[in-house]
């Protein structure tokens, strides 16, 4: 339990840094922040009004304290485009992004880890070279380009994928009653399998496009750490003990190879959360990424900052999760803490 607290405390400096950066991005940069917050259609009077309302005429430290105070109340300001509180907007759209990211991660892990393991058991074989080649090629494809290519092939040419109109074709289906906000989960809870299948069908292409870029780092590190584990002394001991091949591969080699794999997951999450923005744009996905793009283009300042902050907090929490996963895998990490 002590190590859990230690890890939790360890995230505080990161969170603090994140808050300072988002504050600086919105309050201490060239130009007139008040003009930013007032939006492109503002005149001198409305800018002045915004300035006093947001306290932008105060010195920076005071503004910072006020910013932190607002954050503590969950107040990220109001969006100019939707007219709602940014917090409300983001929370409304967050489940869509999380659902997409989750499926993308599942796709990437489910494909990359077996590939890496397979390649490591047959180093220098045809399988190994094919794996390495396909993985490097996948790493060169911009996510948004992959997204468009998949739409072109599977929707336009082959017509086996549904129209890329977001999470659900609302002309044909109605969204499941809101419980978690994740459509596939909510549809299952409601017992509506037709809607569940429709939601899943909408998810397939975006999740693959998003996951493809995460494939390369996971497969590479799996292969490398598997090779190392298979060549290790303890694998040799297991073989000398006459243990069955499957046991050696899974319990001895793979479990040891998992720690380096969990270490690259942090980088993978950075990719996934960032690329989310691009994929949501391609597929008309109504998540926080698409919201942020609209906000950026409309100079909707509070909305953009809220989005950046939320993504960063999400990322810090995901890294914490990965960290905890590492302690589950490796008892040594647990004892060091």
């Amino acid at each position: 339990m002590a190590f859990l607290w230690k890890r939790l405390l360890g995230t505080i400096p990161s969170l603090l840094g994140v808050i300072v950066v988002t504050f600086l991005l919105s309050h201490a940069l060239p130009g007139d922040p008040a003009a930013y917050f007032a939006g492109p259609a503002a005149n001198a009077a409305s800018i002045a009004e915004v300035r006093t309302k947001l306290g932008l005429d105060q010195p920076l430290p005071v503004q910072f304290l006020r910013y932190v105070g607002d954050l503590a109340h969950g107040d990220l300001g109001n969006s100019l485009t939707t007219g709602q509180a940014v917090t409300t907007d983001l929370l409304q759209r967050l489940p869509a992004s999380l659902e997409l990211t989750f499926y993308a991660l599942v796709f990437a892990v489910a494909l990359a880890i077996p590939m890496g393991v397979w390649a490591a058991t047959k180093p220098d074989s045809l399988v190994d070279h094919l794996c390495r080649a396909s993985v490097s090629v996948a790493a060169a494809f911009p996510t948004f380009f992959v997204g468009l290519l998949l739409v072109y092939i599977f929707y336009f040419l082959l017509d086996i994928a549904p129209e890329p109109v977001g999470r659900l074709n609302e002309i044909l289906y109605t969204a499941p009653p809101h419980v978690t906000g994740a459509y596939t989960l909510d549809a299952l809870i409601a017992g509506d399998f037709a809607t569940f299948r429709a939601c899943l069908a909408q998810l397939v292409l975006p999740a693959i496009s998003l996951g493809l870029f995460a494939l390369a780092p996971i497969a590479r590190i799996t292969r490398a750490s598997m090779l190392q584990a298979l060549g290790s002394d303890f694998t040799r001991t297991a073989r000398a003990g006459g243990l069955p091949r499957g046991k050696i591969l899974i319990t001895y080699a793979f479990r040891n190879a998992l720690l380096p794999v969990s270490n690259v997951l942090g980088m993978v999450f950075s990719f996934l959360l960032g690329s989310n923005v691009l994929i949501e744009q391609v597929y008309g996905w109504q998540g926080i990424g698409a919201y942020a793009v609209t906000a950026v283009l409309a100079s909707d300042y509070a909305a953009v900052q809220g989005f950046v902050l939320m993504m960063a907090v999400l990322y810090v929490l995901l890294n914490l999760l990965v960290d905890l996963l590492g302690t589950v895998i490796d008892p040594r990490v647990r004892f060091e803490a």
């Binding site: 300072v20 991005l25 959360l273 923005v277 989005f307 950046v308 993504m311």
Partner: peptide, 17 residues
């Protein structure tokens, strides 16, 4: 602190600012 952000998101925020 830079690494605490998903990097593409941070880049978006910087350009927006």
């Amino acid at each position: 602190t830079i690494m605490a952000f998903p990097l593409f998101v941070l880049a978006m925020g910087i350009v927006a600012a």
